[in-house]
């Protein structure tokens, strides 16, 4: 039998996390629900942000959930792909901008 650490069905069991700490779970899920409700940003915009962050933290559950959410909130594949490029640009940029540190150290050590 094949076994995987991540299984799509497990996403539906997220609520089980409250079994041994119900008060904390309730606080978290209330907060979570409030965060994704329509506010200054639309639910669609928030889902796009969540999709990008999901790829940054590389959470398979979140990628599954927010791909579906983005489609159901009316985003198209072009918008979703651009959101990932924003995440990729920040991740790549965060690596590259540390090149400043590299250069500083190298300059100090070099003739």
């Amino acid at each position: 039998m094949e076994e995987f650490y991540y299984s799509p069905e497990d996403l539906g069991k997220f609520g089980d996390i409250g079994k041994d700490a119900p008060d904390l779970a309730q606080k978290f899920f209330d907060y979570y629900g409030a965060v994704f409700a329509e506010g200054a940003l639309t639910e669609r915009e928030k889902s796009l942000i969540a999709l990008a962050v999901a790829h940054t933290v590389q959470c398979p559950y979140c990628i599954d959930a927010y791909t579906r959410a983005c489609l159901e909130k009316g985003s198209n594949l072009g918008e979703m792909t651009e959101a990932l490029h924003v995440a990729a640009a920040i991740r790549g940029g965060a690596s590259l901008v540390h090149g400043v540190q590299m250069r500083k150290v190298a300059e100090k050590l070099s003739l």
Binding site: T42, R44, L71, E72, K73, G74
Partner: peptide
């Protein structure tokens, strides 16, 4: 464009 529900009509 697939196996999911439509978004909110107004949005």
């Amino acid at each position: 464009s697939g196996a999911f529900l439509p978004p909110g009509q107004r949005q």
